[in-house]
């Protein structure tokens, strides 16, 4: 469903991703691990088109999308959520979801009718709000909801475009342990045919959700395999998991 071949990106003398090749099958849930500065977010930015790789290609559903702009990739089914909330603060939860759903249903550019009044848009809004537990907050403005609920909305907005592949950059970033547990259920309850690529530092969530694990270090893929193999990998313990296992 999503494939990268030999992705390379440098900023001046700093090599941020080196020869990264990944292949995600339809419905696969892969977690990307790696210490800070490993190039995880830079990899995401290249996948969605916010950054152009120096070398290598990105393929979505078998098509080379490397040259496509961000919006076109999104319309082809590649959606993302951000590590830092990038919501529409002055709008309600419903309007936030509605903006994304309107784009997906082709109602975002009509100037004679309200997109939020369209049945297909309302259906997606309701569906996604149920999926990410936002029904009680539908009419609240983003500024009125808690940080944890905003994280749910961050994922919800990305889901409302009905993507084939959803990239999630640290969905539990900044939330407490209780809320993080809720995210386990939220991610596990997403449709099984949705391909997920998740950057996550919460190891419990990572091993709970992941079908496969990829570890980046200094921009390079140093591990690519099953969660059980990742747990037993000495290399991983050395570069990343040591502190977690000791704790």
């Amino acid at each position: 469903m999503l494939e990268t071949r030999n992705l390379d990106k440098s900023f001046g003398a700093v090599h941020v991703t080196r020869d990264v090749s990944l292949k995600l099958e339809r419905g696969e849930r892969r977690v990307i691990l790696g210490p800070n500065g490993a190039g995880k977010t830079t990899l995401f930015n290249q996948l969605v088109g916010e950054l152009t790789p120096d070398r290598g290609t990105v393929h979505l559903a078998g098509e080379d999308v490397t040259a496509l702009p961000v919006a076109k990739r999104a319309r082809q089914g590649l959606s993302r959520s951000y590590q830092k909330n990038t919501l529409f603060d002055g709008l309600t939860v419903e309007e936030n979801l509605g903006l994304a759903a309107a784009i997906h249903t082709g109602n975002a550019t009509t100037f004679w009718s309200d997109s939020l009044g369209k049945a297909e848009v309302r259906e997606i809004v309701k569906d996604v709000a149920n999926q990410v537990d936002l029904m009680p907050f539908l009419h609240a403005k983003v500024s009125q909801i808690s940080y944890g609920v905003r994280r749910q909305l961050e994922v919800g907005v990305a889901l409302a475009t009905r993507p084939l592949v959803l990239l999630m950059d640290e969905p539990t970033s900044g939330v407490g342990p209780e809320m993080a547990k809720g995210f386990h259920d939220l991610l596990n309850n997403l449709p099984r045919d949705l391909t997920l690529l998740i950057i996550e530092h919460d190891m419990d969530l990572a091993f709970d959700v992941a079908d496969t694990i990829t570890v980046l270090n200094y921009g390079e893929v140093v591990f690519d395999g099953l969660p059980d193999a990742a747990r037993g990998s000495d290399l991983l313990k050395e570069i990343y998991l040591g502190s977690w296992e000791d704790a």
């Binding site: 709008l91 903006l99 309107a102 975002a108 100037f111 997109s115 907005v157």
Partner: peptide
Amino acid sequence: SGLGRSFSGVMHNEQR
């Protein structure tokens, strides 16, 4: 309209 809502969304957060 849908266009107006999108326009407002762009003002709030063009990147998103």
